[in-house]
Amino acid sequence: MSVLAIVSLKNGQPTKGGLEAASYAAAYAQAQGVEAVALVAGPMQSDGGLGATGIVRVLHCATELSDSSQWARLADAASKECGASGVVLTHDHTGRAIGPRLAVRLQAGMVSGVTELPNAGAVRKNVFSGKAMADVEVSSNTVVYSVTPNAFGVRDGGGTAEVSAFSAEVGEARERVTGFDPASADGQTPLPEADLVVSAGRGLKGPENWGIVEDLAKALGATTACSRPVSDIGWRPHHEHVGQTGITIRPNLYIAAGISGAIQHLAGVNQSKVIVVINTDPEAPFFKAADYGIVGDAFEVLPRLTAAVKALDA
């Protein structure tokens, strides 16, 4: 018996989300007294650091796969090979494409976006876009979970995993990848994985003013985000839109400047560990959801914060 983690690779290394899935699988396997196994596809150096998360054995498929149907077949074969009673993925584009396909193949109940280890036969996930939590029970023998990015963290316990070559009949690829546009030229961490986020709203008044937001983000090593109207009007790209109808994030730190804190915005960010709000209006609803607040003009406050961050590191 085992718990199997499906780990995505980027540039030959597990992604942060992949390491989180591996860490979750290892902890879940340990709680059940079974083996923790990981499946990767594509070129990877040694165990890719998966042993340190508690994974004991890595099934390594040398061929890179991007097709969800092929991935599901590979994962299906791997879970049979290691007798998996649980399969763990990341709740990102892979968990949304491969996980549900695999659940159908394994006839397993799937819970997506879990935030904690299962407890007394139920597993916790966020529902209503972060406004509530649900404890979900699965009735099938095998379970498939996808883990919310930044919820569980990466375990680093030292150790190395045994790597063995793995392959399976996965059928033909039906998706042909023809190009890739990076989200940002300067290599920001993708928003769902980011630990630090600097976000701004309509209070910034126009796209030409985003320099002060980007400066603070750069000084902190943070990723930039925005409110919905800002991306709707085209001041910022769509992938920066956070909230109930954008991306849901849970960074360590979320700094919001010139955002009022509408309920739909809060839904996507209220699980951030620390929230800082900068707003000229002391009555802005966002202050009720914040840990730290500055009642003031973002045009003055943001450059001051940037200078203070630079002074810290100087």
């Binding site: 659940a103 799937m110 139920a122 649900a134 404890d135 979900v136 009735s139």
Partner: peptide, 9 residues
């Protein structure tokens, strides 16, 4: 194959 046992805030 799954069901919500309990919601919480």
């Amino acid at each position: 194959m799954s069901s919500v046992r309990q919601f919480s805030l």
